[in-house]
Design a protein around this nucleic acid. Structure first.
Lengths: 144, 144
DNA sequence: CCGCATCCTAGGCGATACTG
DNA sequence: CAGTATCGCCTAGGATGCGG
């Protein structure tokens, strides 16, 4: 590649990129960043995938979500935290009765449903290319 | 909702979900998890978006990537780390000369290009719904 | 049953200095 | 110019106990 004339042909592409990301640059509170971070954290994607199947009570959701993971069960604290975050962004609705003991259930909003569709697309693609990626890793590790 | 008969109609849906995620559950090294984590971390998505515009040398890539973020510039160490991770999974190719000083450049692989397409889809959707999400947050914070 | 407060650990990331 | 090593911070997440 000829580095002396390199930026010329990508500048408009880059400007367009900057537009999409917002003119000031992306910051931590920006949905494009914070929601992507949620989708990449340890539990939120699994929670969303389970919620796609309908309405769930906290405890059952916790159990089923844990089954989807090969690791330890999600802690109660994190479950609450993650659900709060999803609720805050408008992806999840919370229904509570103020009985003692309380009955609380969670459900995707229409916005949340759209989000999960995108998430499922990503995950499907990744699973379709799972072997390719794993092979690339082995190859890379062997050389090193 | 009638919780006494609740699991019956979602069980096959849940079984199908378990299939997609792999029968043993998803673990940390699983592409579906680790790549989603990459796409949600602080710098990888920006790096991928810039690399979509072509081939880049380390230093220039570092500069341009930082411009896309409202935060501080990416550190040299993390830049190297993130590029290694992307290379390991087969999303990025690295070209190096062993001169002193070295010239190193990075480029998306065909697989990486597909990945970025999905990433861009997600980010586009998120930016399209940016105001909705921000409004939901304000609403939620006001009630609390 | 669910939420919250407290304490703790692991890992992501930044800053700096050094080598080829 | 690019990579590595060392250090230190800060946040995600787990464990436990209490209260409504």
């Amino acid at each position: 590649m000829d580095w002396d004339q390199f930026p010329h042909d990508v500048e408009q592409r880059l400007g367009q990129l900057a537009n999409e990301m917002g003119q000031g640059g992306v910051e931590r509170e920006d949905p494009a960043r914070s929601v992507m971070a949620m989708l990449g954290d340890r539990w939120s994607p699994l929670i969303l995938l389970v919620l796609e199947t309908g309405e769930w009570r906290h405890a059952e959701l916790r159990r089923v979500t844990a089954q989807l993971s090969a690791e330890q069960a999600i802690s109660q604290r994190i479950m609450t935290l993650k659900l709060r975050a999803l609720e805050r962004d408008g992806f999840v609705n919370r229904h509570a009765t103020d009985d003692v003991p309380p009955k609380v259930s969670y459900l995707l909003t229409p916005l949340g449903l759209e989000l999960v569709k995108g998430l499922r697309g990503m995950i499907t693609w990744l699973n379709d290319h799972r072997d390719t990626i794993l092979a690339a890793r082995e190859e890379f590790d062997r050389e090193a």
